Simulated scan of single mutants.
Amino acid sequence: MDIQFIRRLAELLEKSAIDEIEVVEGESKVRITRHAAPIVPQNVTYHAQPAPLPAMAPESIQAPAAAPVAAPAAESAPQGYMIKSPMVGTFYRASSPEAAPFVEEGSIVKAGQTLCIIEAMKLLNEIEADVSGKIIKVLASNGQPVEYGEPLFIIAPED
């Protein structure tokens, strides 16, 4: 593949609503992806202004109640590099029902290694690791529908 062809693909991606283009030509393979920042809905809460309190004599003022005991800290999520779904589809951990999963928790992966398949519109899309490291957590279940931007794997990048 020549550089002009790749540039034309990139221009096509910019001018269209397509998020990803992948071309395989013999042993050559090129994938161009546009990752737009996901739109995060803003939660807005409106509070009514409290009504003024009636005036009280100083002897009727009571000491403030003891503060409630803080809730125990929530279990922290594993830290690491998150691989997110680039599309809406169905998540598969293996290439077929009889095959072993591409990766397991604790597996060491290299950048570009296939982690899973997402089926979208009858097409099987291989999802590859962006970084090399160790799989800390597999967040999606086999056969589960996934949304764009949904976390699939957490990887501890190698140093």
Results as ranks from 00 to 15, higher is better:
Gly143Met: 06
Ala71Cys: 09
Leu115Asp: 04
Ala71Arg: 15
Val40Arg: 11
Ala63Leu: 14
Phe91Met: 05
Ile18Val: 14
Tyr46Gln: 09
His35Lys: 12
Arg93Glu: 00
Ala48Met: 13
Gln49Cys: 03
Pro145Phe: 01
Ala111Arg: 13
Arg93Phe: 01
Phe153Gly: 04
Ala140Lys: 15
Ala73Thr: 07
Tyr81Met: 02
Phe102His: 05
Val88Met: 11
Thr33Ile: 10
Ile135Leu: 00
Val131Thr: 12
Asn125Ser: 08
Ala36Asn: 07
Arg34Asn: 00
Ala48Cys: 10
Ala37Thr: 06
Ile154Arg: 01
Ala99Ser: 14
Ser85Thr: 12
Ala10Gly: 10
Ser60Asn: 09
Leu123Asn: 11
Ala71Thr: 10
Ile18Trp: 11
Glu147Pro: 00
Pro151Val: 14
Leu9Arg: 05
Val109Ser: 05
Ile32Met: 14
His35Thr: 05
Gln144Cys: 03
Ala99Asn: 11
Ser95Cys: 04
Glu147Lys: 03
Met82Glu: 11
Ala129Asn: 05
Gly149Ser: 01
Asn142Thr: 01
Pro54Ile: 03
Ile3Trp: 06
Ser96Phe: 15
Phe91Tyr: 15
Met87Cys: 13
Ala51Ile: 01
Ile108Val: 14
Ile117Lys: 04
Ser95Lys: 13
Ser95Gln: 12
Ala156Glu: 04
Arg8Ile: 01
Glu14His: 13
Glu14Met: 08
Ser132Asn: 06
Leu53Thr: 09
Ala74Pro: 03
Glu126Val: 06
Gln113Cys: 00
Ala65Met: 07
Val138Asp: 02
Tyr46Leu: 14
Thr114Gln: 08
Glu158Phe: 09
Ala70Arg: 14
Cys116Lys: 02
Gly80Leu: 08
Gly89Phe: 04
Val146Arg: 07
Glu98Asp: 10
Leu152Ser: 01
Leu152Cys: 04
Gly89Gln: 12
Glu158His: 11
Ile3Val: 14
Ile127Val: 15
Pro41Val: 01
Ile39Pro: 00
Ile154Trp: 01
Ala71Lys: 15
Pro64Ala: 03
Met87Asn: 13
Glu11His: 09
Glu158Lys: 13
Glu128Trp: 07
Ile118Met: 05
Ala55Arg: 08
Glu59Tyr: 13
Ala36Arg: 10
Lys84Thr: 15
Val146Asp: 00
Ile155Pro: 00
Gly133Ser: 07
Gly133Ile: 06
Ser95Phe: 05
Asn142Asp: 13
Gly89Met: 13
Glu105Gln: 12
Pro38Met: 06
Val40Asn: 11
Pro52Gln: 11
Ile18Leu: 12
Val24Glu: 13
Leu139His: 03
Val44Lys: 13
Tyr148Gly: 00
Glu158Leu: 12
Glu98Cys: 02
Ala77Asp: 15
Ala77Gly: 12
Val131Cys: 05
Ala67Arg: 12
Arg93Leu: 01
Ala63Phe: 04
Gly149Ala: 02
Gly80Cys: 07
Thr33Asp: 07
Gln62Trp: 09
